[in-house]
Amino acid sequence: MEISGFQYLAMPGALLVLLTSMLLLAVQDWRVCLALLAIQYVGVFVLVAIHWPMIIALTKLVAGWIATALLVTAISGTPGLAHGVDQTPLKSTQFRSMPGLSISAWIFRILTAAMIVLVVFTMAPLTAEWIPTIQFEEVVGALILLCLGLLHLGLTAIPLRVVIALLTTLSGFEIIYAAVEVSTLVAGLLAVVTLGLALIGAYFQIASVGEVET
């Protein structure tokens, strides 16, 4: 499989996804969260572009940014007052933020994420050996997204956060899959899945409001 000039940007790309996915776990403000998601897709694009032609790899970036824009539009477009699960009115601020993280929960998340990152760095050389076409930095980036996405999924029941976590996990998979399969149809379908998940996130946001954070 052909490797493009993006291989020299692999390390910055991996660091970018590491930083954004860790912050996504800890940050509560939805604006920052979605900004981080948008930045994360830049890292994903860089790592995918190592193996995929630039034009096809761009679908990741474009789909990711459109997905983020969809979520931003849905949240910012929701009315100031909404009804909670028990039909009680919720204040605008409560509706728009993702509340519930205490200091101890915040520390717990960061520590857990740090431990997972350590495990990823331990596992990465073995995985890179197992998939011959892949670079170490790609494996690190992909596994970080996969593992932190899964951690995020395990820690939340808020619909919007679930969708962000799923998008993160999916991005991790896409980096690995890009190294083993180049197909325009797959790229197209994965972009549709990304947009579909974002649409569902927007739908969840409009249809109802979140639940309790673990």
Binding site: P159, V162, Y177, A207, S208
Partner: peptide, 25 residues
């Protein structure tokens, strides 16, 4: 629309989404 998102729905979406990469890979 106009109904709270249930945990079953979220879990359904999560599990089916996690299945896809596993099978593709």
């Amino acid at each position: 629309p106009n109904q709270p998102v249930g945990r079953g729905t979220l879990r359904y979406l999560t599990f089916q989404t996690l299945a896809m990469p596993l099978v593709l890979f």
